[in-house]
Amino acid sequence: MTFVRAVVERDLKLYMRGVVDLIGVWMFFGIAIAMLPLSIGPDPDILSRIAPGAAWAIALLASMLSLERVFAPDQLDGSLDLLLLHAPSAHVLVLAKGFAHWLVTGLPFVVLAPVAAIALGMELRGVLPLAGALLIGTPALSLIGTVGAALTAPLRRGGILAALIVLPQTIPVLIFGTAAVSETLMGRDSGAYFSVLGAFTLAALALAPYAGNAALRAVRS
C-alpha cells in the first residue's frame, strides 16, 4: 500500500511538473465541449440529445492524450527499472500507474460533468447520472489505457500508437457509459447499465494488472 501511495504521489508530482500536460487535459475537455455547438449549431434540442455521448467521447479522447506520460518517461530515464525492483509485483505497479492516470484524466471530468451538462443544454437531472457514469466508467478507461501505455513504453512518440490500440478496446465502456446517462434522461430504468459499466471497471481492475505485466515484460527484455 505504501508503495502504491509512493508511486501515485510521485506520478502526480510529475504530472504537475508538466503543468501544460495537466492543464491541457482540462482545457481540452472545455474547448472540445465549446467546439461542439460551434460545429453542430446552437440548437438546444440537438445539443441536449447528443450531450451524454459527446461528453463520453470527449472524456475518452482526453484520457488518451496523456498515455504517453504513464510509462514512457520512466522507461526512458531508467526509473522504471527501479520502480519494478521495489514494487511488490509488476501488477501492483500497473494498478498504481492506472490510478494516478485516472486521478489526472478521469476524475477531472467527473468534477466538470455539471459544466458539460449545462454547456450542452442537458437537463439538470442528467448531471448526477453523467457524473456517476463517468465516476464508474472512467477507471476502466485509465486501466485499459495503462496497458496500452505499457505496450508502447519504449517508443519515443508512442502516444498516438497507444491511443490507436486502446480506443477500440474501450468501445463497451463508451456504449454503456453513454446509454446509462441517456436512458436515465429518457426516464427509463437505467440501473442495469450502471451495473454493466461497473462490471467493466471491475473486470478491468482484475485483468489489467496481468495484461500490463505481460506488456511490460514483452517490451522490456
Binding site: 505496450l151 508502447t152 490500440i165 478496446q169 495484461a211 506488456a215 514483452a218 517490451v219 527484455s221
Partner: peptide, 11 residues
C-alpha cells in the same frame, strides 16, 4: 512481435 502478441490476446 512480443508486444503485438500481448495486444492480440487482449483483443
Amino acid at each position: 512481435e512480443r508486444a503485438a502478441t500481448v495486444l492480440a490476446l487482449i483483443g
